[in-house]
Amino acid sequence: MALTTHPPRAPLWRSTVGKKAAMAVSGLVLLAYLVAHMLGNLKIFFGAGELNGYAAWLRTIGRPFLGHEWFLWMARTVLLAAVLVHGTAAYQLSRRDLAARPTGYRHTRARASYATRTMRWGGVILGLFIVWHILDLTTLTVNSRAEQGHPYQNVVASFHTWYSGWIYCLAMLALGLHIRHGFWSAAQTLGLNSQHGNPRRDRVLKLAANALALLLTAGFLSVPIAVMTGAVK
C-alpha cells in the first residue's frame, strides 16, 4: 500500500530558496562578465590602437562560423536574461521580505555590515548605471562627440564631461559593495558554504569576495580616474 509521502518537487522559481538560487546563478554570470570586461578595459593604458583593435576583434569572435557581431549579440542576450532574472527575483523577494516584517522595533541597531544593508539600493543604482552606460558608450546617445567603432576616443570624450566620471566612480563603489556581500551570499545560497565545523572555507569565501570586489572596483575605477587626471587622453 502506498502511503502519503512528501510532495514532488515544485518549480524552483516558486520557492524562496529556489528563487534565491536563480539570483545567485545570474549574479555569478554577471560577475564573470565583469571580470572579463574590466580586464578588457585595461587595454586603454596601451593606447588607442590596442583598445580599438580589441573592440573590433570582439565583433569577429567565432568567424567564419559566426557572422559579424553574432557572438556579441549572443553575449548580450545572456547578459540581458541574467539582469532580468536577477532583478525580478530581487524585486519579488524584497516585496515578500518587507511584508514579513510589517512592524518595526523601537530601537534600530544596525549590526549587519554596510555592504549587506545596501544590497537593495546598491542593486537599483547598478541597474540605473547599466542603462546610462549603454546610452553612453554603446549606443552613444548621451555621448556627444562620440563615433561608432572608436571606443578609446569615446571613453575619453565621456570622461571629459564633468558628470560622467563621477557617475562611474559612484557606480563602481556601489559595485564593490554589491559584490562584497553578493559573492559570499551566492556561495551560501548555492550550499557551497555548508561545511560544518570548517570555518576555514567560510573565511576563504569571504576573503575571495573581498578580493574580487576590490580588484573589480580598482580596475574599473582606474579608467575614469586616468582620463580625469589626464594620464589617458
Binding site: 529556489g18 548555492l190 550550499g191
Partner: peptide
C-alpha cells in the same frame, strides 16, 4: 520572508545555531 544572508538570526540565537546551517539547508534543497 526569504533569507538575505544578513546573519542577524545566528547572532540572536540563544542556542548558538550557526549561519552555515542555512548553507546546508540550501544544498539539501537544491
Amino acid at each position: 520572508g526569504g533569507c538575505t544572508n544578513t546573519g542577524e538570526c545566528a547572532t540572536a540565537c540563544p542556542k548558538g545555531i550557526g549561519l552555515n546551517a542555512i548553507g546546508t539547508l540550501n544544498r539539501e534543497f537544491l
